[in-house]
Computed example of a mutant assay.
Amino acid sequence: MKTTTNSIQIASSLVATIAVVFILYMLQAFLIPLLIAIILSVMVFPMVRFLERKLRFNRVLSALSALFILASLTFFVFYFICFQIKDFLDQSDIYASRLNVLYEEIQLHFKKYNLSGLLSSENKNLKIEALLKDNFSKIGEFVTQSGSILSDLFLIPIYIFFFLLYRKFFVTFIYKVFPKKNNRFINTILKKIYDVQKSYLLGLFTVMFIVGVLNSLGLLFLGIENPFFFGFLAALLLLIPYIGILIGSLLPALVALATKDSSWYAVAVIGVFGFVQFLEGNFITPKITGSKVSVNSFVSIIALVLFSMLWGTAGMVLALPITASLKIIFDHTQHLKPYGFLIGEPLDEHLKSNAMHRLKIWKEIRANKN
């Protein structure tokens, strides 16, 4: 009988999980801008609170002011990126002709060793110029066909405004959803989720700035064109954990291959970005973020893969903040605590155990003295 009950519970959990995943997939057009708006609301909330407390702005004016500043910064960043990309595209013919020359040289070397069949000039898919122009044309198609991106640019600010304006109203709603829970308990969870999101965002932007400077200095030392643009563009791609900076290294490596006399410059570019990635993953991010976003690397990679399968690139950006928030909820839900333990850093648990052990010893010493 007990075995049957357990089987029913497992089957019910599996069906519920499949249903949740299906709903998340079907509602991605609604959920993605909503979640992005929540995260951005956390980012601008300190500014809103400053305007309300120090400058005595009302809630509407402070939310609109913060939204205007955020929109201005976003516009400036995207304008700069688009301007630089346009400059890059204007020189694409020069880059393509240079890469075709390199391609022909590689063919000659292959012919010397009777390997010319591997790089047939009749294979149009291997024509560098065709590849570049095809990819550049796809950029325009992506922009024109992705109407959802344009709609999100209008929806996200609206969501942010109402999240900031009705924040106390939403907290009261959560109290009513969980009437059996103490309000102090709910406030604790909400504060921890807010703190982990704020720490993640603050740490992320700090890391992006440091990585952007290191990338730019490396490219400047190698003499690559537009070093600060390519350096900070790769840093911006840190929004996609683990693989973002590797993707960002391909573009300057391509420019190095097209503009420098030796292909070793392209190898050096990838080497610089790989070294910066090593520093970021092992020293910069752990030092800045610390244990505030305590999600272990293995779970981070799994979350990255699963969310990318679910929501594409947007899922890769949202994977870590969502997983960090889920950990807090799991840690404060009795039957989900094992999953919170699985998501967390093993080192954190070890340190926590040591701290509890030291506290127990200290209490025993104090009791003996008394």
Results as ranks from 00 to 15, higher is better:
I288V: 08
N354Q: 15
V21Y: 06
A319V: 00
N125T: 11
N226L: 11
A355F: 05
I36R: 09
N296W: 02
L118N: 00
L89Y: 12
F75N: 13
K287H: 14
N354F: 14
F76I: 15
K192C: 08
Y242M: 15
Q28T: 09
D90A: 12
K363D: 07
I247K: 05
V305I: 12
F273T: 00
K260S: 10
T259Q: 07
V299Y: 04
F209R: 07
S62G: 12
E349H: 06
G147L: 00
T285D: 04
L51P: 09
V177W: 02
R53C: 08
I186Y: 12
L359F: 09
F88G: 15
V15Q: 12
L336N: 05
N100Y: 12
F136D: 08
A11G: 09
L236H: 07
L236S: 10
K2G: 11
Y113E: 08
S325L: 02
I158G: 12
E345I: 01
G271K: 13
V171G: 12
R167S: 04
G340M: 03
A355N: 13
F232W: 05
L219H: 05
D87S: 15
F163K: 12
L165G: 13
Q9C: 02
V317W: 10
D134H: 06
V293T: 01
F22L: 13
R358I: 15
E105K: 15
C82M: 15
Q334F: 12
S216T: 08
L64Q: 14
T74D: 03
P33W: 01
L326V: 07
W264N: 09
P46V: 04
L238W: 09
N296I: 01
G248R: 11
